[in-house]
Simulated scan of single mutants.
Amino acid sequence: MPSLMETYIENREMVQPNHANNLDTVHGGNVMKWMDEVGAMSAMRFAGKACVTARVNEMDFRRPILVGDTAVIEAYVYDAGETSVHVHLRAFRENPRTREREPTTESYFVYVGIDESGDPSPVPDLVVDSEEGKRRRREAVEGLDA
């Protein structure tokens, strides 16, 4: 059974002008796409099989990410059902020179494990066996309740 910390993935995207709107900030759709891709990687790492996006909780865009910033996306599985994989996702803006980082976007995505026919397929139970994993799971669950 996979542990929460084994599902942790962090990815970076350099925000270029082609990612931006007329205010030189990244389009929210690009942030959502990057979050979905990293979330799917985390879900598949956990499930050991293909996973598809089933639901996106509300997306909270708290501050912009500017052209020239690095968008940092982090994801980890915090819960699982019979076929569903629940992933906590956060995006940050990071200055590539100073490494100053601020949170920008947060959401919870649900993926479903699928078999070769594309039908829902069982996923393993989640193990939370470290203090860091327990902290991250608590953080995700508390964020849902907020």
Rank of each mutant, 00 (worst) to 15 (best):
L23K: 13
L23V: 13
D24S: 11
D24A: 12
T25A: 00
G28P: 02
N30L: 11
N30I: 11
W34I: 04
M35P: 04
D36S: 04
D36H: 00
E37Y: 12
E37R: 13
V38P: 04
G39I: 09
M41Y: 13
S42R: 06
M44L: 10
F46N: 05
G48C: 12
V52K: 03
V52H: 06
T53V: 11
V56T: 15
D60T: 15
D60C: 12
F61P: 00
F61R: 00
F61D: 01
R63E: 00
G68A: 07
D79H: 01
E82A: 14
E82D: 15
V85L: 09
V85W: 11
V87F: 03
H88G: 14
H88I: 14
L89I: 13
L89Y: 11
R90K: 14
A91W: 10
F92V: 04
R97W: 13
R99T: 13
E100W: 06
E100K: 07
E102W: 15
E102M: 12
T104N: 01
T105M: 06
S107T: 14
Y108C: 02
Y111D: 05
G113F: 12
G113T: 12
G113Q: 09
D115G: 05
D115A: 03
P120N: 11
P120M: 13
P122F: 10
D125Q: 13
D125S: 15
V128M: 05
D129F: 07
D129P: 02
D129L: 02
S130D: 02
E132L: 12
K134I: 07
R135H: 11
R137E: 06
R137G: 07
R137S: 07
A140T: 03
V141Y: 02
